[in-house]
Structure formats: C-alpha cells, structure tokens
C-alpha cells in the first residue's frame, strides 16, 4: 500500500518536472518560442548554449539544496534548519570572498574547494552549538542559525566593502540563473553525484535522525556518518554559492512538505525530495523570467518571498500527524 502511494508521488513529481523542463526551454528574454527552436538552426545553438544549461542548472541546484536540507535536518535533529539559513551558505560565501581577496587569480575549482572547506567549518560550528541547545526549545536552533548566518553575512559585507568587492558579494548572496551558460555551470554536477551518494546511505541517514544513542545501538558508526553528512551539505552549498549564489528556503520547505506527505523514511522520500526541490527552484526561476518580461528577477528574490510564505504556513499549521 505505502509502497504504491510512494511510487505515485514519485511519478507525479517526475511528470511535473518534465512539464516544467519543457516550459523552461521555451521561456526567455530572446524571443525564441519552442516552435522556432524546433525549426531554425540558430535556435538549436541558443538551446544548447543557454536555455538547456540554465534549466539543468536550476534542476541540479534545487535537487542538491533540497537534499542538503534533508540531511542537515537529520543531523541537527531539527526540522527548521537548512544550509542556506543556518550559516553554511554564508560560510561558503565568506570563504570564496577571502580567497578572492587573497588570491584573485585562483581557478574556479580552487575557489570552490576553499568555499567548501569554509562551509564545512561554519556548519561544524553551528551543529556543535545546536546540539548543546536544550531540545525542549526546538525553535531556538533555527533562530540561532538565522542570526549566525546573519552575523557571518555581516562579516562578509564588511570585508567586501573594504576590498571593494561588493558587486561580487551581491552576486554570491542572491541566487540568479541568468548568467548560466554552457561551460559555466558544470560544477553543479558534483551536487548530483553527492545526491546519488546520499541515496546510497539513505537508511543510515534515517537512523541518524533518531539520534546518537539509537544509531550506535543499531551498530552505525555515528561519527563517520556525521562526517559524511557534513561533507555532503558543505560541498553542495559551496558549489551552489559559487556557481549560482544563495537560494534560500529550498532546503527548508521541501523536506518538510515531503515529510508530511510520506513520512521520514529516506530510502523512500529522498528521490521525491530531490525532484520536488528541482520543481520548486525551476518553477521560481521560470516565474522570475515571466513576472517582469523581458527583464529577469533573480531566483533568490522570488524564492525569498515564496519560501518565506511556505515556511510561515508550515510554522503555524500543526503537523498532520502527532
């Protein structure tokens, strides 16, 4: 029964994503409709160089961020945290900013590496703190995360100001797909790899969400899993920040919505979470392209509004079960 319902969810999500995928290929500032793309040869170029990479980037970003959020919630054992609002993304931003100041000529790969390391450190600090906050007050953890992220962001702003890099900072701190072209987004595939990796250890992640004692009782190397989880979160966030910029709330609302529908067995939910994340981000990007056509509104801004509304609804609507 349950397996069947889960499969239905998966199929529906897949269908929706397919529709959005086609739609995304057809929408853009340069007036090329799908029909044009089909016929003219110039259209194929546009498709291959700009539209397809952009669409793929949105899908990869959404899936990656949603999974990062899912894992972070499992590790922090708190439903209201996610990398983009709890300091991970801001740490990555700080890292890439510092490396840009210190060594402007560094390659993108190296910058991503530094950003990942910074994200790892920042997330580690957050989680250490989160585990020490009293479990009786679940809202303190996300609050702490939000302000912690804000403080890191303020530090980044200060440094950027001093180094005259505010424009770059604006790019990193507000996610935007309009600059995505072939050859400039491929780093995001790392995220896809990590999502696949997460799926391999899904059962262990589910058990981790039950806590340290339960994990050890079931014979799981808790510390090792913690490290794996942290690396997945940090790398996905860092890659996203470097290529796209911060996209808030995806990792927060998607896992929660899916959990309400399907529960918390990650073996079953993980693919749906990834697909739904992709759907949300792609939909917001398409929306951003359409609201003020032919101008574009960055996906970070659209997501700030959509995500905040969804999150508030989530906060005040009691969970369906329990």
């Amino acid at each position: 029964m349950i397996v069947k319902a889960n499969r239905t969810c998966l199929v529906i999500a897949g269908l929706v994503l397919a529709i959005l995928f086609v739609a995304s290929l057809g929408v853009g500032a340069d007036q090329a409709t799908l029909a044009d793309l089909w016929q003219g040869s110039g259209g194929i170029d546009l498709l291959a160089i700009s539209r397809l990479p952009r669409t793929l980037a949105a899908i990869l970003t959404g899936a990656g961020l949603a999974i990062a959020g899912l894992i972070m919630q499992a590790i922090a054992r708190n439903r209201f945290v996610e990398p983009a609002t709890a300091g991970t993304a801001q740490s990555a931003e700080l890292g890439i900013l510092l490396v840009t100041v210190a060594w402007p000529a560094a390659s993108l790969g190296f910058k991503t590496l530094v950003a990942s390391a910074a994200a790892l450190l920042g997330t580690g600090i957050f989680l250490m703190t989160a585990h020490r906050l009293p479990p009786t007050q679940p809202f303190l953890v996300p609050l702490f995360g939000l302000v912690y992220g804000g403080v890191l962001g303020a530090a980044a702003t200060f440094i950027a100001w001093q180094a005259d890099l505010l424009q770059y900072l604006a790019i990193w701190s507000n996610g935007d797909f309009s600059g995505v072209l072939r050859g400039r987004y491929e780093l995001l595939w790392i995220g896809a790899g990590l999502v696949a990796g997460a799926w391999l250890v899904a059962d262990r992640l589910t058990i981790m969400a039950l806590g340290r004692e339960a994990s050890i009782g079931l014979g799981i190397d808790y510390e090792r899993m913690l490290q794996i989880g942290l690396v997945i979160i940090a790398v996905i966030s860092a890659v996203t920040v470097v290529v796209i910029g911060i996209v808030p709330f995806v990792g927060l609302v998607v896992p929660n919505l899916v959990s309400r529908l399907m529960g918390d067995n990650m073996r079953a939910t993980l693919p749906v979470v990834a697909l739904s994340g992709a759907i949300l981000v792609l939909a917001c990007d398409i929306l951003g392209r359409l609201i003020r056509f032919p101008y574009e509104i960055p996906v970070g801004t659209v997501m700030g509004v959509t995500g905040a509304v969804l999150f508030l609804l989530m906060l005040f609507r009691r969970p369906a079960h329990g």
Partner: peptide, 15 residues
Amino acid sequence: DMGLMLLAGVVLGVL
C-alpha cells in the same frame, strides 16, 4: 512559545 514567536518574526522580516 517565545521561540516560535521569534522565529516567525524573523521569517516575517525576511519575507
């Protein structure tokens, strides 16, 4: 709950 209120306030601010 004070924590809920704070969190809602912060998110409202973001919104």
